[in-house]
Amino acid sequence: MQALYFLIDTVFTLYIWAIIISIVISWLVAFGIINTHNQFVYNISYALNRITEPALRPIRNLLPDLGGIDISPIILIIALQFLKVFILHDILLPLM
């Protein structure tokens, strides 16, 4: 049961880090610090976008237009943290 606990915790943590890295890369591209014409940067950006966009798109559709400010990653990270605590401490921990 501890292995399942560790696996769920690790998956949630890695996905949250993927969201954070995706945000940072999008800012670096937007400010012209890195260029997507570089194949390595493009591949990393594309992979992170494919991983995070399916979870971010429904949140973006629900939020009103905030004038260029995208708070959907923050909402997703908060929701993932809530789910992680709920699953690990309220569901799995009593079973151990």
Results as ranks from 00 to 15, higher is better:
Met1Thr: 03
Gln2Tyr: 04
Gln2Ala: 10
Leu4Ile: 12
Tyr5Ile: 07
Phe6Arg: 08
Leu7Lys: 03
Ile8Arg: 06
Ile8Met: 13
Asp9Leu: 04
Asp9Ala: 11
Thr10Pro: 03
Thr10Lys: 11
Val11Tyr: 05
Val11Phe: 11
Thr13Pro: 11
Leu14Thr: 06
Tyr15Thr: 11
Ile16His: 09
Ile16Pro: 12
Trp17Lys: 10
Trp17Phe: 14
Ala18Gly: 09
Ala18Tyr: 04
Ala18Met: 12
Ile19Pro: 13
Ile21Leu: 14
Ile21Glu: 09
Ser22Gln: 12
Ser22Val: 02
Ser22Arg: 07
Ser22Tyr: 15
Ile23Val: 15
Ile23Phe: 15
Val24Phe: 08
Ile25Tyr: 07
Ser26Ala: 13
Ser26Glu: 06
Ser26Trp: 00
Ser26Gly: 09
Ser26Cys: 09
Ser26Lys: 08
Trp27Glu: 01
Val29Asn: 03
Ala30Ile: 00
Phe31Asn: 07
Gly32Pro: 06
Ile33Lys: 11
Ile33Thr: 13
Ile34Pro: 03
Thr36Ala: 07
Thr36Leu: 14
His37Gly: 14
His37Asp: 14
His37Met: 11
His37Arg: 15
Asn38Arg: 12
Gln39His: 13
Phe40Met: 14
Val41Trp: 05
Tyr42Glu: 10
Asn43Lys: 12
Asn43Tyr: 04
Asn43Pro: 02
Ile44Cys: 02
Ile44His: 02
Ser45Glu: 03
Tyr46Ala: 04
Tyr46Asn: 13
Ala47Leu: 10
Asn49Phe: 06
Asn49Leu: 03
Arg50Tyr: 03
Thr52Arg: 04
Thr52Ser: 11
Pro54Thr: 01
Ala55Phe: 15
Ala55Pro: 08
Leu56Tyr: 02
Leu56Arg: 01
Leu56Ala: 05
Pro58Ile: 01
Pro58Ser: 00
Ile59Tyr: 04
Ile59Asp: 12
Ile59Glu: 13
Ile59Ala: 10
Ile59Gly: 13
Asn61Thr: 11
Leu62Cys: 14
Leu62Glu: 09
Leu62Ser: 15
Leu63Val: 07
Pro64Asn: 01
Pro64Val: 06
Asp65Leu: 12
Asp65His: 15
Leu66Asn: 07
Gly68His: 08
Gly68Trp: 02
Gly68Glu: 09
Asp70Lys: 02
Asp70Gly: 03
Pro73Ser: 05
Ile74Cys: 04
Ile74Asp: 08
Ile75Pro: 05
Leu76Gln: 04
Ile77Arg: 00
Ile78Met: 11
Ile78Gln: 07
Gln81Phe: 09
Gln81Leu: 11
Gln81Thr: 07
Phe82Gln: 00
Val85Leu: 11
Val85Cys: 06
Val85Ile: 10
Leu88Pro: 03
Leu88His: 01
Leu88Asp: 04
Leu88Tyr: 05
His89Val: 04
Ile91Gln: 03
Leu92Cys: 01
Leu93Lys: 15
Leu93Tyr: 12
Leu93Ile: 01
Pro94Gly: 01
Pro94Arg: 00
Pro94Ala: 00
Met96Asn: 06
